[in-house]
Structures are given as C-alpha cells and as structure tokens.
Amino acid sequence: MPADHDDAPLLTLRNASFVTGGRTILHNIDMAVHGGRITTLIGPNGAGKTTLARMLLGLIKPTTGRVWQRPGLSIGYVPQRIAVDPVLPLTVGRLLSLTARHLDDKATMVLEEVGVPHLFGRPVHGLSGGEMQRVLLARALLGNPSVLVLDEPTQNVDPAGQIDLYRLIVTIRDRRRCGVLLISHDLHIVMAATDWVICLNRHVCCCGQPEDVSRHPDYLHLLGHRDAEVLAIYPHRHDHRHAPSGEPVPDGGTDTMANNG
C-alpha cells in the first residue's frame, strides 16, 4: 500500500439521514473519505449507496445531519452510466469537454492515462460498457480532482475487464494520490484494491479493513452468499489479458491487484 495517507479527511458525512416520500433511505451515516486512500462502499441493491454518493457530491441535501467538504475540494464524479441518445452527435473528445473546455492535447493525455487513447474521435453512443467507464473516468480526471467518486464502475463490464478497471483505479490513486470512493456490490473483486470498506444497508452495518469486513457476521449475513458465487464462476486463469482496445496483452496470471500498489 502506498505510504503517505493524508489522515485529515477530505469529505465527511456526520450523522446524515435522508428521508424521501416517508421512506428512510439512509439513517445516521457517519463516514469519511481520505486522501490517497480507496474507500469502498458496499451493500445490496437498494441499500442507498447511490443516494449516499449523491449526498457527498452535494446533489441532494441530507434531511438531517451534515455533509462537509474540505474548502476548495474538487471532486471528480464518475456516474454509473450516462444515456447519450444516438440523435446527439457526441464524440469522446467532445464529451471530455462537456462541463469545461479542455485542450485536445490534455484530453488525449488523460485518455492515454486510462488506457483508451484510440477512442478520442469515436462517437459516444457506440462505446462498450468498459470503454464508457474509462472515458467517464478520464473526464473526471481532467478536473484534477482530489477525490474521485465512482458509482459501480464495473456494472456493465465483464469479469476480466472489471479486474483491469480496478487495477487502473489503484494506479491512478498511486500516481495522483487522490482519495477514492468506490461504490460496489461485490467486495470479493474489489478487496485487493481497497483500503477501507464500509458495508451499507440504509445504515452503516460494519466497516474496517477489507479482510475484517469480509469475515464480519453482518457482512456475511448481508452479502456473504455472493462470495461463494464469485469464487465458483471465476476459477480460470489466463496467460494474457486484454487491453481496452481488445488487444491481448501478456500477463502473469490473474494476480491480485495489490501487486500494482
């Protein structure tokens, strides 16, 4: 794991609850995102993970409690998906300049950083799930964020691509020393890429190091059955993996992502 964790939090929730239409979506959440550290938010569907992320981003206000951001903090947001209608002619390059103008050189550089420089001139609506995630990640990186918030980045990505994407996130964290909040429903696959896990089901069930959480009774009760599934369906080993462009790239096997750090 990389050294200098910045121990002062960049982003915190204090006793935050969110109620809408008489339903409590989130109840008394306390959490923090630290610089240089990957915090994973894990929980079943409907646990309020996206609501929590939207609260941290300032898109919605907590009903009670509060959100605190370090003054001047810049957050890079990578949403779960964006639906670009084919009737909107949007290239990847133009999408990168969606909310702020960037020079093409700079845009190409971040695309290179996330491993998809060849996508610059491509129309957005033809991208695969994995390509789209990398492009959205590149867009977020263009703002030089001190915190990255990624909402289920591997939702539409095949298992091998998921591991690549998590490796990439670790690499970016190491290079840029930014804090990362990762939302996932699959602890097993993000475990090696995570420094701290928060298990959420409308409230914080448990939190800690990934190894500890994976053995915690609350976690096992909530999501434990998934581990068995993942272990059963992903036993194969490859001698190569695929670059985002689809090219085979040699690899020492399906090592854990910790090797990268």
């Binding site: 939207r54 300032g58 898109l59 947001y77 949403p79 964006i82 969606l98 909310t99």
Partner: peptide, 19 residues
C-alpha cells in the same frame, strides 16, 4: 451552450461540476 449541453447529457454530471 456548454451548460445546457451538459445538462442534456447528464444532469447529475452537470450539477456535480457546479452547473
């Protein structure tokens, strides 16, 4: 133009960028 296009593509993304 730019904010309107950003809101059209993704309102969350636009708002998270301060639009």
């Amino acid at each position: 133009w730019r904010p309107l296009l950003a809101v059209t593509v993704s309102e969350d993304l636009a708002r998270a960028s301060g639009i």
